Amino acid sequence: MVDKARLKNIWEDILTLFLEKALSLRFDICTCELCQKKMIELLLRQFSPFYIEENSFNYEEIKKRLIKENSKKLFIEIEKVIEEVSKNPPHPAWEDREKEFDMLLKKIKEDRGIDFSRYHRSILKRRIALRLLVHRLNSYTEYLKILAQDPSEYNELFDVLTINVSEFFRDTEVWESLKKILERIIERNNSENTPIVMWSAGCAKGEEPYSLSILMQEIDRIKTSFTIYATDIDEKVLEEARLAGYNSDVLKNVDEEILKKYFKFFQGRFYLKEEIKKHVEFKYLDLASSETIRNVDLIICRNVFIYFTKPLQEQILNKFYYSLKDGGYLVMGKTEVLLKEAKVIFREVDAENRIYQKMG
């Protein structure tokens, strides 16, 4: 006979586990015991009770099965409940976390001159939360004190706020299409006897602009000079990019012949030769506020727009429009979509690879 006192609704364990994970990076809302209790209470209403003895031999097996069968519902319901309770906590609001977050963004702007206020807040919060976890902090106010006491923390913060992971010739099909675009640019500028100017916006550690320089050398029809401006808001990665030394994991798309031709291996790393480096000029530039670069033939700005709000995307697209020469090209990330408002100033050249051309 089953002892009812020993029976437990297995969903209590599952929901508690998943809720704790979901809340671990949420410093923008209250996660006190009362709020978590209310969240669990609401969540249990969404899942039919499944009672079983906690010490049963198949307890873990059943738990895994229920998780697998309800994985999608779990994430959806948890997100809904978190938002509901955060807006209507079961206690008086003791802290304005949004105000705290605004103060943090203001501090960053004052200290380093970078305005993140028009970036997507949810993405910023998730990334800043990683630094709060490292320091075992519970609020943005506490983190403000860390920044004030230790300015070197900004280097770690910018590491998580900016995406610095890339590789040479990332998305090879994009580079195949881009080669045809570059051939057109070279032909036009050769005939006009004008230098070719390109801009890699959000260049990270330099894999993209150096890929561009290699591709230009490989086309080998250039009768004029070419320069690639490579910009980023992270001074630390710009310093690394200038060194032009890379591990093999970012070179997986580079043919063996190209590797031998343009790189030299030294102390476990591959270093680019001067004939590639000399065409790339690295500089600090904040797309949200800095001056632009003029008379550009090609702009590559991939996987950067996802961090910007729509108004900021519009502003930057206008900036790119005025940066480009008539008939100049813009390359965006494959997961990014050109705003419909921008389709009156840019025409689609390659929809799949997100390549656009400035219209006069």
Rank of each mutant, 00 (worst) to 15 (best):
R242C: 01
K72C: 00
K180E: 13
K283N: 12
E84L: 14
R302K: 13
A288W: 11
N138Q: 12
V344R: 05
I108R: 02
A204G: 03
E77M: 13
V349Y: 07
F226V: 03
E274I: 04
H279Q: 11
E187K: 15
F226M: 09
K21H: 13
S225I: 06
I345T: 06
S166Y: 04
G360N: 14
P195F: 12
D115E: 09
L238S: 03
S166V: 03
V85K: 04
H279N: 14
K179I: 01
I316S: 01
L74V: 02
Q149S: 12
K334N: 12
E98M: 06
P195I: 04
E20W: 11
F169M: 05
S152Q: 15
T141G: 10
Y262H: 12
L161K: 09
R65Q: 13
F226P: 10
E235M: 11
R121A: 02
E53P: 04
L74G: 00
I185C: 07
S122Y: 15
R347W: 00
Y356F: 15
D286H: 08
K87N: 11
V250M: 05
E60W: 10
L178P: 07
V237G: 01
L144G: 00
A5M: 11
K205M: 09
E142D: 08
Y119P: 08
Y59Q: 04
R354W: 06
F18M: 08
I82K: 06
L338W: 06
Q315N: 14
K278S: 11
S323T: 12
R97L: 12
S24R: 15
A241R: 05
V81R: 09
N190A: 02
E176C: 02
K223V: 01
M103S: 10
E291F: 14
F320W: 11
K145N: 07
S48C: 01
Q36D: 01
I10P: 02
C35R: 07
I108G: 01
K264T: 13
D96R: 10
K277M: 06
E77R: 15
F50S: 03
R136V: 01
P209C: 07
A241V: 05
E281I: 15
K87D: 05
E79R: 15
T227S: 09
D234R: 07
A342H: 08
T292L: 05
S289F: 11
E341P: 00
L43Q: 07
L23C: 02
Y356N: 02
E53F: 11
T16R: 14
F47V: 00
N247Y: 14
K21E: 15
K325G: 00
F27S: 04
L25E: 09
E208H: 06
L44M: 09
Q315F: 15
T162R: 14
L338F: 03
T335H: 06
A148K: 12
E173P: 08
N155P: 00
E218C: 02
Q36V: 12
P89I: 03
I163L: 09
I276H: 05
R294K: 15
F101V: 09
V2F: 11
F305R: 11
T172G: 02
K277T: 01
T16C: 11
K310S: 06
Y119M: 10
D150K: 14
L339A: 02
L7A: 03
K343A: 03
E77I: 04
G202P: 04
T224P: 05
S191M: 08
Y143C: 03
K273F: 08
Y229A: 00
